[in-house]
Design a protein around this nucleic acid. Structure first.
Lengths: 207, 207
DNA sequence: CTTTTTACTGAATTCTGATTCAATAATACA
DNA sequence: TGTATTATTGAATCAGAATTCAGTAAAAAG
């Protein structure tokens, strides 16, 4: 017999992440991935069915992590819905914080998988958005949020905005740091662009 | 001599749009596009240098249209900045309103072109976002918008949110009509999720 | 130390689909 | 009508890269 030495599966996924992110799924060559991983071309096929399987595996782990942290947040009864939304936003950024390559994969290759492997992907995707919607609904119910907000449109909008900023960040991590992005997103999401009326001590409205 | 009959270039771009949107750029076969357009395979190459050129041509027209309507809006002095932003949002949706296939192309294939043809694409992209930022800055200057808003993050966020919703819509136009999306986006962008303090007739603050 | 079993290798194979181009058709012009 | 010129065709070519597999290496078992 012979034992597997080293965690080749991990080397390969790490390499794939890097190459997919740089070249795009279609531009990435299995040969480059193998070289980057330090294994032979053929070895990739010992661990994954094919190129697409490799991509799916990466996404699958990602969605799983995302789902888990969302699930956690939904269960924390002590949070207000406003806090919950803020934590949801944070948890997405936490996931990508030190992995810009993963972020690029996530934002760029999602459409491909959604077309080629609609089943699993669609499931995660829909489930994920559903969770967001749920929080918004519940916040409206409690009077925390504007009652005329459309939960599904809102959730999609925020999700899309986050993706776009993740992409900008991953493309050039220096142009704005992630903590700025998170903070700003929360501001936009909660307060919007217009200045808010605030109460002065006398109870009157100030611009 | 022989004259070109029919507007083959247009037939081909129309077909390409449709097929690219359905199969994705990489999944689309030139042969299918030619058949859909009602011309021979080789004819595609009489009008476009290659497959990528075809995609670029579509994007190029699109960005041009986008740029033009943005430019118009920037020049309309009678608008408040708030109105200007609302019109910007509308102009994007107007562009895609009856062309879901174009919308899918736009949201799905942008990353590919940004990688493969960074020059022109990047130019349009950056310019486009810059225009948005400009409006926000100017609105802040005039006191129309929250002074602590980060113009670049804001613009990217909104752009991303719009993309996401365009995609959802294009994927299944029936789930929410475009006019709902526009309205909701404007609400989110302007007011955010939290309920606003409003004045009642007596000048006091109501929840 | 030999045998057996499993891991790994990377050059060769295969497939897919973009691109080409020799042949043909249509129109203009003389 | 005949000839020149340009447009169009689509089967054949070609390139590139995913996948395979016969061969080799390493570890375990005896």
């Amino acid at each position: 017999m012979r034992r597997r030495t080293g965690d080749k599966e991990r080397w390969i996924t790490a390499a794939a992440m890097k190459i997919f992110a740089r070249e795009g799924f279609h531009g990435a060559k299995i040969t480059s991935i193998a070289k980057e991983a330090g294994v032979a071309t053929g070895s990739v096929y010992l661990y994954f069915a094919n190129k697409e399987g490799l991509l799916q595996h990466i996404f699958s782990e990602l969605w799983q992590a995302m789902h888990a942290s969302f699930q956690d947040l939904l269960l924390r009864k002590e949070l207000t819905e406003k806090e919950r939304i803020e934590h949801l936003i944070d948890s997405i950024f936490d996931l990508f914080a030190d992995r810009p390559a993963l972020a690029l994969l996530f934002v760029n290759e999602q459409p491909y998988l959604l077309r080629e492997a609609p089943g699993e992907m669609m499931y995660h995707y829909v489930d994920f958005l559903r969770m967001g919607e749920q929080v918004v609904r519940s916040g409206i119910g409690k009077g925390e949020f504007s009652p005329d907000m459309h939960p599904r449109v809102f959730t999609n909008f925020v999700f899309g905005g986050i993706r776009q900023l993740l992409q900008q960040w991953a493309r050039a991590p220096r142009q704005f740091p992630l903590y700025v992005i998170r903070t700003e997103i929360k501001r936009i999401v909660m307060q919007g662009l217009l200045p808010r009326a605030v109460l002065n001590p006398a109870g009157n409205v100030r611009a």
